[in-house]
């Protein structure tokens, strides 16, 4: 699950195939054969006709879902931009009818659409990365529900989905340069700086910080927020190993470290390696850090995007 080049952002559909059809097909064939044998040997035309009607039901029930699945249309109407690995992301689909939609990559719970229209599908990416498409199993058993036919559909997302790594335990010693580690680098809010804004009073706020004009205007106690002196950013270096699983763990810990540093009030300069090369930049929130780490990759691993199934390399 890496960032995909623009050429891959297109729809792909496999040919529908019956899913777990052996049982129903064998049952139908055995029933029909037994029925026909009895009807044929008993010489009863109505029994044979009744068997033919049953066979008609079976044929329609076994074959028509293939056509229904082939005609089924699913598209992504909206998708979020950010999600954390292991957490569900809800994407909005437009569907053309009663379908069963099962996320394959990334995985997620199966959605029964019920009827045509917009439906919410949950996908749960299990590791960080940038998703630009989802692979879904689109199934139909219309009109009788005897057997499901399924096709794989690769759908481009409405926008890239940045899957941030899980929040790991912070480890400043591993990710922050040694000279920047320690209490000396802690940045606390200064109460003597310039006013940057006002906010409602919270228990624990200094009474001297109350901003009376704003309080009179708002009708509730408002306090000043003061801007401290600009601190020197703390550099967090996220160097990911080539092993995917190990890289995931490292990214999680790097994110935890970023969160830990941000909590101290210090800005963070995050250093990562991305497809375009090494990148450094300030991150103000864990969300921004998550996005950066979603795109980060090992400097040793070659950038590869697995092509969609059935598509030429």
């Amino acid at each position: 699950m890496r960032a995909a080049p623009a050429g891959h952002r297109r729809r792909f559909e496999s040919f529908p195939l019956p899913h777990r059809a052996l049982g129903p097909v064998l049952a139908a064939a055995a029933t029909f054969a037994a029925w026909t044998a009895v009807a044929h040997n008993s010489g009863s035309g109505w029994v044979q006709t009744l068997g033919a009607i049953l066979a008609g039901f079976f044929l329609v029930g076994l074959v028509v879902p293939g056509f229904a699945t082939r005609r089924a249309r699913v598209a992504v109407a909206w998708s979020p931009a950010d999600v954390t690995a292991g957490q569900p992301a809800i994407i909005e689909l437009t569907t053309s009818g009663s379908l069963r939609v099962g996320p394959v990559s990334p995985a997620g719970p199966v959605l029964l659409t019920g009827a045509a229209g917009r439906r919410e599908l949950r996908i749960v990416p299990d590791h960080r990365g940038v998703l630009d498409r989802v692979v879904l199993d689109v199934s139909s058993a219309a009109p009788f529900g005897l057997v499901w036919w399924t096709k794989h559909v690769t759908l481009p997302l409405a926008q890239p989905l940045y899957v941030a790594p899980r929040m790991g335990l912070g480890d400043p010693e591993a990710f922050v340069e040694a000279s920047q580690v320690g209490d000396g680098q802690r940045r606390v809010r200064d109460e003597s700086g310039e006013t940057s804004g006002v906010r409602p009073y919270l228990p624990g706020d200094n009474r001297r910080s109350v901003h009376w004009p704003a309080t009179a205007h708002a009708g509730e106690l408002m306090v000043r927020e003061l801007e401290g002196p600009r601190a020197k950013p703390v550099t967090v270096r996220a160097e990911l190993p080539s092993d995917e699983a190990a890289a995931e763990r490292v990214a999680e810990r790097a994110l935890g470290t970023v969160a830990q540093v941000l909590h101290t009030g210090a800005p963070v300069l995050l250093l990562t390696n991305e497809a375009a090369g090494e990148r450094s930049g300030l991150v103000a929130t864990t969300g921004q850090a998550g996005r950066r780490l979603a795109q980060a990759q090992s400097p040793l691993s070659a950038f590869q995007v697995p092509p969609p199934p059935g598509e030429a390399q």
Binding site: T49, G51, A55, G56, V64, T113, A115, A142
Partner: peptide, 29 residues
């Protein structure tokens, strides 16, 4: 099928098409 697919109501048009399919398949058999 409607119940399996999430409780959508059965459409008359689908029913007519299915009925025609059953009739044709039965006649062929």
């Amino acid at each position: 099928w409607g119940s399996m697919a999430g409780g959508s109501p059965v459409r008359v048009q689908t029913g007519v098409i299915a009925l025609l399919g059953v009739v044709v398949a039965s006649a062929v058999v």
